[in-house]
Design a binder for these strands. Structure first.
Lengths: 181, 181
DNA sequence: CGCCCACTATTCACCCAGCGAATACCTCCG
DNA sequence: CGGAGGTATTCGCTGGGTGAATAGTGGGCG
């Protein structure tokens, strides 16, 4: 699922000033609160690989009221890598990587049309409920613009799923026939 | 984004009859042609884990005009696991796992508004181009219903991205201000 | 004073996912 | 007979991701 490209995000956070692992994790949670949760272990593992590849370097250790901590900084190569990543356009939808889609295909293979249809209907209900939650997030007066933009992203894709579920419900019988032909 | 749940798909393909690894890979390519490509190695590794967990079992070996091959079949536990998976509703969008989104956030953090804006515009162009390709796939007279349904899924999500790109372009200045406040 | 708790910061040990190369074994074709 | 090509599986390595463990520090509390 991808991948949200954790290494590049860490490079981006480091571009705003040298930090150590713990700070990076908190900065990530603050800047990308609705993103896939990032574990501490993952931060240190990724930092290790970035250092190995010469994209970050240790900028000294200190012990300010707590355990030792090693601060990392961007190298020139890291800065140019980040720059290149930011300029590069992401390939849009090279393949359909969705559990939703895979599940419906498998349902058509191993079960009958009604089974697939009932799954589509349940999924539509769950999506609709989540959609309501997210629109509530948007209208919350305490919502930041960051929250709203993230919610809009999720809403747009939930809506896409819903429209696909709708048209697929209308085609599921034909589709089943084709699959078992 | 790992996650199209390869194990469950393999269980689904096995539900249509016992097969060996090579056949499973081909069945996968036939049934889910637009899905993330599945390597042979991945099939055997996954089969090994499924066998370890008691969801599939070897149903004998034979050597019919070729090298040895071990056929796998679903166990009862595997069948019920598959059944459970098919019945379970997928959690809709628990978090925003999109490189697109992450990249725009990072762009706003490390660069200025124009940089973010120009990225959004380039990405919109790429998406629009891909959208044209996919609508061409749909109108191709040789397209199967399977192709059309998969294309529709991709089209719906490309459209979702495009609408998000559009509204975000209008908010990027405000967003940048909030991020740097 | 002694103790536990919470916070900071990192490390470790696994597991799964993904990819490419390597290894056989067979058939067919020239 | 010798190589190309399809069949079938294995291996090694890297990266992604999780949960537990470790370790030091400061603050509150009896």
């Amino acid at each position: 699922m991808g991948g949200v490209s954790t290494p590049h995000v860490l490079l981006g956070l480091l571009a705003g000033g040298s930090r150590h692992g713990y700070e990076l994790k908190r900065a990530h949670d603050q800047r990308l609160p609705r993103a896939r949760p990032l574990a501490f272990g993952q931060v240190y593992a990724t930092l290790g690989r970035l250092e190995r590849d010469g994209l970050v370097a240790t900028a000294g250790q200190d012990r300010a009221s707590g355990p030792d901590r090693t601060t990392y900084e961007l190298t020139d190569e890291g800065r140019s890598t980040l720059d290149h990543w930011l300029s590069a356009v992401e390939p849009p939808m090279p393949y359909v990587a969705s559990t939703l889609f895979a599940k419906v295909v498998v349902a058509l293979l191993v079960a009958d049309v009604d089974r697939a249809r009932s799954y589509l209907v349940s999924q539509r209900a769950a999506h609709t409920a989540r959609l309501r939650e997210l629109t509530a997030v948007k209208t919350d007066p305490a919502a930041t613009l960051n929250d709203v933009v993230a919610a809009d992203f999720a809403i747009a894709h939930l809506d896409a799923d819903l429209r696909w579920l709708h048209t697929t419900l209308g085609r599921v019988a034909d589709w089943h026939r084709e699959v078992h032909a």
